[in-house]
């Protein structure tokens, strides 16, 4: 993979590389490098702490979009023993920006859906940068309703800049597809766990993010509008995105405070991309625990609680 690092992570990565080089030299036994390695490792710990404890909202936005960040299929590969992808919405086509299928995980069978971004240029185009058309949302709903038919729990992995803004998307009813998902998913009689893994881009994310338990990865974001979009509307300048990111309160910590999400999944130091296997393991643990928690609820109880949970969202004076 190409060497893509964010500005604020580069000094850390460079320091780690330097340590690695010294180690190699050390194994050759010609020079005494132990003390130097220890010194640099202390420095690295300090540097990591400095950088990652004080991330600005805009830096978190950048991390959530990190080109090395694990995507839905990466998570699926790590957390499932088996996955059979299903395609198509049965009306128009198959949207590669959303994947859906049957999976086995920790002895359970479940339905997994999620946005899918691409890694290489051609993959990015194929996946439309993770921006679904209506057929993607309709495929997700079709497969989720099938989960309900067979009594399978659902895991939804959310990572999209937003629903695709294009002519075909409007012609085929982007708004209708999202609205229908919101209504239908809110009454699905099976447990639904949602994890925002990267970018939670507005309605395009929400359309598959209604669930009994909604988690965010530590460096994921979830926003009513992209910081760039907000900046260009309010500041009339998309370059003010960092100010907008601040104003929008789109970090996991903010959203936990507002009761929008139920929990935060800690990422490995430096972010999920620094140790995707560990990030996936943590996701799996949280999902399995949540399913265990939800197990005692009858289908009616699940739906009642889910609707009640979302009905309480909002802040106003009466």
């Amino acid at each position: 993979m190409a060497e893509i690092w964010l500005d604020f992570e580069r000094p850390i990565v460079e320091l780690e590389r330097h340590i690695e080089e010294l180690r190699i030299i050390g194994t050759q036994g010609e020079f005494e490098v132990k003390e130097e390695i220890e010194r640099l490792e202390k420095k690295a710990v300090k540097l990591r702490k400095e950088v990652y404890t004080n991330l600005t909202p805009w830096q978190r936005v950048q991390l959530s979009r990190h080109p090395r960040r694990p995507y839905t299929l990466d998570y699926i590969k790590e957390i499932t023993d088996e996955f059979v992808e299903l395609h198509g919405d049965r009306y128009f086509g198959d949207d590669a920006a959303i994947v859906a299928g049957l999976g086995r995980m920790g002895g359970r069978s479940l339905i997994i859906i999620g946005h899918q971004k691409g890694r290489s240029t051609s993959e990015k185009v194929e996946r439309n940068f993770g921006m679904p058309h209506p057929e993607g949302y309709r495929k997700a709903l079709r497969v989720m309703q099938m989960a309900a038919k067979f009594g399978k729990p659902i895991l939804s992995l959310v990572d999209t800049p937003g629903a695709y803004p294009g002519i075909g998307a409007e012609e085929r009813g982007q708004a209708e597809a999202i609205a229908r998902n919101l209504r239908e998913i809110s009454i699905l009689p099976v447990p639904i766990i949602v994890v925002i893994t990267g970018e939670g881009g507005s309605g395009g994310a929400l359309a598959i993010a209604v669930g009994d338990r909604v988690f965010m990865m530590q460096y994921a974001i979830y926003s009513v509008i992209s910081p760039e979009g907000c900046a260009s509307i309010l500041w009339r300048d998309a370059a003010k995105a960092s100010e907008a990111a601040e104003a929008l309160k789109l970090t996991a910590r903010d959203l936990l405070k507002f009761g929008i999400i139920d929990g935060i999944i800690e990422e490995p130091v430096g972010g999920a991309h620094r140790n995707p296997g560990e990030a996936a393991r943590r996701v799996k643990e949280v999902v399995l625990n949540s399913l265990e928690d939800l197990n005692p609820h009858s289908p009616e109880e699940l739906v009642r609680r889910r609707i009640e949970k979302f009905s309480k969202m909002g802040v106003y004076k009466e």
């Binding site: 999202i178 507005s202 929400l206 009513v224 309010l234 309160k249 969202m313 909002g314 802040v315």
Partner: peptide, 27 residues
């Protein structure tokens, strides 16, 4: 305007709230 930017994600969640209420009305 759609969901109101000035209330961030609290606004976005109103989409779910209204749609879920309609599911019951529909039912």
């Amino acid at each position: 305007g759609g969901a109101r930017m000035q209330e961030g994600m609290l606004s976005l969640m109103q989409m779910v709230k209204t749609s879920a209420a309609l599911a019951k009305h529909d039912d």
